[in-house]
Amino acid sequence: MIEFKNVNKWFGKLHVLNNINLKISKGEVLVICGPSGSGKSTLIRCINRLEKIQDGEIIVNSSLVHKKSSNLTQLRGEIGFVFQQFHLYPHMTVLQNIMLAPVNVKKISKKEAEKISMKKLDQVGLTGKSGAYPAQLSGGQQQRVAIARGLAMSPEIMLFDEPTSALDPEMIGEVLDVMVNLVSEGMTMCVVTHEMGFAKKVADRVLFMDEGMIVETGTPDEFFDSPKTDRAAEFISKILTH
């Protein structure tokens, strides 16, 4: 479903993705972790071409993402993206936030879009908040709206970039619960997170990055309980003492 073939990317002199090879299959849940600055965000941002790569191939559902000619609108319609800082549109209500892409990208009717949006809002447990503005919501609620916004396009893939890192601890659970529910629906997911509990519960595979390279991959239990590399072991002990 998603494939990276010898992908390289530089920011100036910084080799931010160093020969990445990766296959993610339909329905798989991949957790990506690693120290800050190791290239995790860049890696998943390449999947919907928020970032361009300089070398290699990225194939999503048979569309060649690295090619200039690829149909980005269609590609991005198939991929939901959830940011660390939510990035809801502050000038729109919750419902308008969720409806925006279905109406303007998929060109479905407002009425239909509203129906879908309300369903997604229900799915993230915020039925009563459709008329609220983002600023009136807590961080956890905003992030759940952001997830609903991604889901409203009926994507096949959801990408999460540290979805709980900006949240107060007491709100992390409500967002993770929504994500766990998505897993049970068979969504293909790439999640950059250091939430070990979440990884152990639902991830099929954990991928550990450092300095732009994939250093280690394994099942969550393998990775967290008996890491193969020193770098991973050091990283895990750091997040445990956190």
Partner: peptide, 27 residues
């Protein structure tokens, strides 16, 4: 306007003109 607003609008598949018209310029 913060970069994140562009990124959210881009990720959802809006065209550049739509991003400006619906998300960026109103703010």
């Amino acid at each position: 306007i913060p970069k994140g607003q562009w990124e959210a609008a881009t990720s959802s598949g809006l065209t550049l003109i739509q991003q400006l018209r619906l998300v960026i310029v109103p703010q």
